[in-house]
Design a protein around this nucleic acid. Sequence first.
DNA 1: ACGTATGCGGATGGTTTCATTCCGCTTATG
DNA 2: CATAAGCGGAATGAAACCATCCGCATACGT
Lengths: 211, 211
Amino acid sequence: MTADPETRLRADARRNRDQILAAARLIFAAQGAEVPMEEIARSAGVGVGTLYRRFPDRDALIRAVAVDNFDRVLRDARAAKDQEPSDWDALIRLLHQSMELQLSIQLAMVSPRALAILRSDPAIKALRDELLVVLSGFVQGAQAEGRLREDVGTGDVAMLFATLLRQMPGKGEEVARIAMRRCIGIMIDGLRAGQNESLPGRALTGDDLDP
Amino acid sequence: MTADPETRLRADARRNRDQILAAARLIFAAQGAEVPMEEIARSAGVGVGTLYRRFPDRDALIRAVAVDNFDRVLRDARAAKDQEPSDWDALIRLLHQSMELQLSIQLAMVSPRALAILRSDPAIKALRDELLVVLSGFVQGAQAEGRLREDVGTGDVAMLFATLLRQMPGKGEEVARIAMRRCIGIMIDGLRAGQNESLPGRALTGDDLDP
DNA sequence: ACGTATGCGGATGGTTTCATTCCGCTTATG
DNA sequence: CATAAGCGGAATGAAACCATCCGCATACGT
């Protein structure tokens, strides 16, 4: 173990570093990992110089964000497993952590650059795999409980959320087409009248689409 | 009415023009309207010169694609209305025309540039509004039939599909947050065990996510 | 309180990516 | 076969971005 090299920063430097990471998390989640460095710096309230001093290039920043994010999600997932009464509830709870999950998905499934980094970094890859195992546990558990429909797999759930967030690049063309159809099918089932939870907020009308 | 100015093109020119439009439809649907002009030209099998001769700039191309697409979708919607036995069925059928719908959504809700054009062009705006009316008819009709859950509106359905395709830019921040929550709720209901249609293809696993 | 190592901001240079134009060559058409 | 119409793609210029550098500011040990 390398003693973490960020401990010996001057107080203000540490603060800035944290702000940069927080800003990057927000921006990456919302817009993907290809955002101009200057925008991240501005949003963090620092100059680009500061950003580059702490993270030598974009890849380093992405790596840092990715580790942080996967770690959080994994922690959340385990907390859900412990605290919720069933796998179905744990899954639902996890799916509602939208912001973290959205960031994970951007990094792991949408941004080509981030994807390349994840692949090349064994530590991150390990985190990702670990997460996938936990997720699979939820899916199979919830199915065993009779609460999750039998005809979906872990990939469906992930794809559903990924597709919800963006059309994925590449992804074998064939799988993407199939995945798309399945997502639409699931969503249509979600639209059916019947035993549903009530939705938050009010029904959106056509006018809500305008501006 | 100006007699359509594209009729008097030389045969090969007309062919090229059609290829350009077809290529642009595909690319815009998949990647949004901000794709390099050269990529569109290449994909259409022509030089950039040819592209620019037929469409003076990107905006002109977007306009042409938009008119064509809205027109198709509107036609599809009316055909569905006529041929399907219920509003619910018509809605489902429409939602399954993914490619056309995806293009509509890219143009009308995702790409900022396309959006600006739609706004500024009364003819296109009219088409869009017309489409929204038909869609609203489906939604309300399907609810009257007791097949579509009561707590969603036309905006929900549109948002659902838009969100399925991409995270929307701008959109009032507040509406976007709410819309997101509602979409997730609907999708979770779509995941519930119970009375569902069977999905096409096989269940996707975690491994399908890899490549 | 002071000296200095550490950190800061943002102007700047160099590169890449695009949109659009232009022109010599090709081809459909009458 | 003459020629108007069309074609491709190199060339041009503008814009967006990454990454560096340096004069100034600030935290921290003594």
